[in-house]
Simulated scan of single mutants.
Amino acid sequence: MNLHALRLFHVIASTGSVTRASETLNISQPAITAQIKKFEKELSFALFKPQGRGIALTDAGEELALLAKRLFAVEQQIEQFTQDYVNGTNGSIRLAATYLPAHFLIPTWIAKFKQQYEQVEMVITTTNSSDALKQLLNVDVDMAIYGGITEAYPDTIRTEELFQDELWFVVAPHHPYANQQISLSEMMKEPFVMREEGSSTRERLLSLCRTYNTPGPTISLQFNGLHEAIQAVIAGYGANFVSSLVVREYVERGELCRVYVEGILLKNSIAICTRKNEPLSASAANLIQMIRQNPYTM
C-alpha cells in the first residue's frame, strides 16, 4: 500500500477538503488529486464522491478514514516515544548498588530524578561490592553505584569517584572504649558485629589488620544488612567498623559513640561504575549527571 497516498487521503478526510489539505501539506491541489485517483485505482474502490460543490467520503472511504486515523495516531506516539527516549525522558535504567549508597544516598537521588523524569523505569538491585561489579561485567545492569575501598577495576570498567567519607569504629555509649583513644590491637580484642563476607567494609577491616600485622577481629555476629548490624551495637553488643554516612546521626543523638584508634584515619570511596567503550542510554546519562550535581545528599 502506498503510505504517502494514504497520508494524503487522511489529511483530506481530516480537513474536509482538497484545498485545505493542499494548504496544510504545501502540495498543489492537482498533485494531490492525481495521487488520490491513483490510490483509488490501487485499492479498486472510490474514496470520495461528489457532494454539492465539494466532496464527501464514500462508505468505504469512511471506514478507511477511521483506520488511517488510528494508524497515524500510532505513528505520532512512536515519534514521541523516539524523541523522549533520545532525550532521556523515557526508557529504563538497571542499577546495582552496594548497601551503603543503596540505603543512604540512592533514595534521595532517585526521588529527585523521578520528579523530572517520571516515565523512566528504574530497577535497583542492592547487593555487596563483589556482586555489584559482577552484574556490571555480565551486562545485567547499566551501572553500579559503589561504596567502598578504591580498587583496581578491570580495564573494561570506568569509575568516577563522587566523594569520600570516613570509616569509624563505633560502640554503645556505656562501652568502656566510648569516646576513648586506643590502639588497633586493643580494638581488635572486641567482638565485632559485621556484614556478610563480600562486604567492602568488612574486607577493609581485615586488610587494615594485615597492613598493621595485627590479629584480625572476632566477628561474633554477622548480618546481611547494615541496619541490623548497627542495631545490635546500639543494643550494647560488640563494635562495628562502618561508614560515617551510616552512623553519623546515631552518634550525634548519643545512641552510638566513636572509638578513636591511634594512627587510623581511613576513608570510603563513593563511585559510579560503568562499562568502557559502551554508550549509555540518554536516561542513564541524565541520572549520572543529576548525581554529579547533587553527590552528597545527607
Rank of each mutant, 00 (worst) to 15 (best):
T89Q: 11
I124V: 06
Y212W: 13
L266A: 09
R158F: 14
F192V: 04
N179E: 14
D142T: 03
S14V: 07
G91H: 03
L167D: 14
A144F: 01
R158S: 15
E228K: 04
T24C: 03
H4N: 15
L8R: 14
K41E: 15
R248D: 08
T297N: 10
E62A: 04
P107K: 10
Q135C: 07
K49G: 13
A73C: 06
T150A: 05
L133W: 03
I288E: 03
R253Q: 12
N87Y: 05
F113R: 01
T24G: 02
L67Q: 12
S185V: 13
A13Y: 11
F48H: 02
K38S: 14
Y146T: 01
A68R: 08
L266C: 11
A56T: 02
T89I: 07
E203Q: 13
V233P: 10
M122N: 13
L57V: 04
L205G: 01
N268S: 12
S269L: 05
G198L: 09
L105T: 03
Y146R: 10
L221F: 11
N87G: 06
G238H: 09
S269E: 09
L162P: 01
L64M: 14
I78R: 13
I291W: 08
A172Y: 12
I124R: 00
N294D: 09
E249I: 08
S28K: 13
K49T: 15
P154R: 12
A65C: 13
S283D: 04
A172M: 07
G16D: 04
H175Y: 00
G216Y: 05
G198F: 02
L184V: 08
R253T: 10
N2Q: 14
T201M: 02
I27T: 01
V242H: 08
M187K: 04
H175A: 02
Q29Y: 05
L8Q: 10
L71V: 14
A34W: 07
I288C: 00
E63C: 10
V11G: 05
A60F: 11
Q119M: 07
L208M: 05
S92L: 13
Q51E: 12
T274I: 11
E63T: 13
A282T: 07
K114A: 04
T211K: 12
K134P: 08
E151M: 11
D84L: 09
I78S: 07
A284D: 06
V233F: 05
V86K: 15
I291A: 00
S200F: 09
N87H: 14
T98H: 02
R292I: 10
T156S: 02
G148I: 03
Q29F: 09
L206A: 06
M1L: 14
T218L: 13
T211P: 06
I291Q: 04
I106C: 14
F223H: 11
F241L: 02
S129Q: 12
Q181L: 06
V193M: 08
E160W: 00
A56P: 01
Q80A: 14
P191N: 10
Q116R: 15
Y85M: 04
G52T: 06
D155V: 07
F104Q: 00
E79S: 14
H103G: 08
L43S: 03
S243Y: 08
N179C: 13
K41A: 14
D155L: 11
V86D: 09
G148M: 04
A97K: 00
L57H: 06
N277W: 09
K38L: 14
T24W: 11
F9W: 06
